[in-house]
């Protein structure tokens, strides 16, 4: 069945496998590494659509939940950047086993991209390529963004709610607890983490050519890795409650990603 648990029996991960339709095996298998927290909920539908489209083109595709997220085992505060990386590798192994594909691409979105590119550095027989879609580049900035997003919500006063000790270091954001370990990892996260060539080739898909994207591009190029940088006019339009409630799917972005996988060499 396409929905299943995998990994250790003590802490199973939830996965959803989209087998390739007709003439499977010609395309690389694809592992989708989604975002976490509220972004994960907002991205769910479009990642399902992306996976369906990829499978229809012959690319067997696996979506999964990190431990501490979605339907995987673990409480929210068990999720860290390190556990995300370990889960990416476990999901990759599962995908290769299920699909019998000879190679795989990883598509990472937001913090999923950050975890994927770091995990790829640690796997001897890792992905044939990574696509970093709207990646989180600076973990400290990401923490501030999460904090600001919650502060902007018109929430009623709640004496039971713990006031954040610092807007730069929120203990909770948008309905999810952020563990001290995750926050410490995020504060320390930067392009300097990229010390080994994570994969043969990479693509960055971002809304605009920002200095942060340029710095990531440069860091990857410094590792002698070809990087294809593309800018997506639909940007992060999916990343809002309104977009989620409207069931919005960025169709041109999905098309671009499917074409990128089809043409991956």
């Amino acid at each position: 069945m396409p929905a299943f648990h995998f990994g250790s029996s003590e802490a199973p991960l939830f996965g959803y496998y989209h087998p390739a339709e007709a003439r499977a095996g010609l395309r690389p298998a694809v592992l989708i590494c989604g975002p976490i927290g509220e972004e994960g909920a907002r991205a769910h539908r479009m990642l399902r659509v992306l996976a369906d489209r990829l499978a229809a083109k012959g690319a067997p595709t696996l979506r999964f939940d990190y431990r501490g997220a979605g339907d995987s085992a673990g409480a929210c505060d068990e999720l860290t950047l390190s556990t995300m990386g370990a889960d990416v590798i476990a999901a990759h192994d599962e995908l290769m086993d299920m699909s019998r594909a000879s190679r795989a691409l990883w598509i990472g979105l937001r913090l999923g991209a950050s975890a994927a590119v770091r995990a790829a550095q640690r796997v001897p027989r890792g992905p044939a390529g990574v696509i970093l879609w709207d990646p989180v580049i600076d973990g400290a900035v990401y923490l501030k963004e999460l904090s600001s997003a919650q502060a902007a919500m018109p929430l009623p006063d709640d004496p039971d709610a713990k006031a954040p000790a610092s807007a730069d270091d929120p203990e909770e954001a948008m309905g999810f607890r952020l563990s001290p370990a995750l926050r410490a990892e995020l504060r320390a996260m930067s392009n300097a983490d990229l010390k080994r060539k994570p994969t043969r080739r990479a693509m960055i898909l971002a809304g605009a050519a920002t200095p942060e994207i340029a710095s990531l591009h440069e860091a990857m190029t410094d590792l002698e890795m070809p990087v294809d940088e593309r800018h997506d006019t639909e940007g992060a339009a999916w990343n809002s409650d309104d977009a989620m409630n409207a069931y919005y799917v960025p169709s041109r972005t999905i098309d671009d990603l499917v074409q990128a996988v089809e043409g991956w060499r």
């Binding site: 919650q150 919500m153 009623p156 709640d158 039971d160 709610a161 713990k162 909770e172 309905g175």
Partner: peptide, 16 residues
Amino acid sequence: DRRADHTYVRLAAQQR
């Protein structure tokens, strides 16, 4: 629960 919003964003509201 007048301290909670519609989807219980805050962890304290979730716990209640």
